[in-house]
């Protein structure tokens, strides 16, 4: 049976992880490779690295880092942040990334999704959607959630699938950082509307939140950052709980 995926997300700035890290036995908490290795040992199913600087000067740092990660890590990983062209993707895939995620650049120029999918396959084309519920509607936001767009979230998700996107990483800005749980309604709406995998993100604060999103929506993965970084919910404990709750999970 296909297992639900637990996916820690690491924010990267100038080749280092940002946000505090609370692991024991970790030599350098800012070193993404050290942290990634810890997550792999704990049983993470996939990793996402999000480059939040993404300036031109730092692209090379990122590519070097991806190369290092690929050498050390034996599970799939996605790299996102500042990807604007097929060439950007090519550099990251050649460095060893399994998937790349695009967000604002795909909203600006949707053909980018098709171009990347045609060149490298849909399986490596993750499209991230930042969504916010406002005036009775779930809409798409870009530029780290700062800029509204006229796109309705479900419509954009369907378009992503049509354009060749292989996976959707859906973050609810209303829920992100609240620790009150994933946005079940929009996650369900999106996962019902498309036939590609949907990863839920934003709002995870307890083990039960993962159970809820897997039971009540079609999400095939749950992504979180701080609750894993700060050791609030250790991955082995989360997986043990989900397994006891009869959620298909890799132990």
């Amino acid at each position: 049976m296909l297992k639900k995926r637990i996916i820690p997300c690491l924010d990267i700035k100038d080749g280092r992880t940002v946000k505090g890290i609370n692991f024991v036995d970790i030599k350098d908490a800012g070193d993404p490779i050290e942290l990634a290795k810890q997550y792999v040992e704990q049983g993470a199913d996939e990793l996402v690295f999000l480059d939040i600087t993404a300036t031109v000067e730092n692209r090379k740092t990122l590519v070097d880092l991806v190369q290092q990660i690929a050498k050390e890590i034996n599970i799939p990983f996605t790299v996102g942040g500042g990807i604007n062209s097929v060439e950007d993707v090519s550099n990251l895939i050649k460095a060893g990334a399994d998937k790349v995620s695009v967000n604002s650049s795909a909203v600006k120029r949707p053909e980018l999704i098709t171009e990347i999918a045609q060149e490298f396959g849909s399986q490596c084309m993750v499209v991230a959607i930042d969504t916010k519920f406002e005036n009775d509607e779930w809409k798409v936001f870009v530029h780290g959630g700062r800029t509204p767009t006229p796109l309705k979230t479900v419509d954009w998700a369907k378009q992503i699938e049509k354009l060749g996107g292989g996976e959707i990483l859906l973050t609810s800005m209303n829920n992100d950082g609240t620790k009150n749980g994933f946005a079940l309604d929009i996650t369900k709406q999106v996962s019902d509307a498309v036939n590609i995998p949907v990863i839920a993100s934003g709002g995870a604060g307890s083990k039960k939140h993962f159970k809820d999103v897997f039971e009540k929506t079609g999400a095939t993965g749950g992504l979180a950052a701080s609750i894993f970084h700060y050791g609030e919910i250790p991955i082995p404990e989360l997986k043990k709980y989900l397994n006891e709750q009869k959620i298909a999970i890799r132990i």
């Binding site: 049976m1 296909l2 292989g166 995998p197 095939t220």
Partner: peptide, 13 residues
């Protein structure tokens, strides 16, 4: 066939 999510992506036994 599109009876479930395609691609089959993730961990399976």
């Amino acid at each position: 066939p599109p009876e479930e999510k395609v691609p089959h992506m993730g961990w399976n036994n």
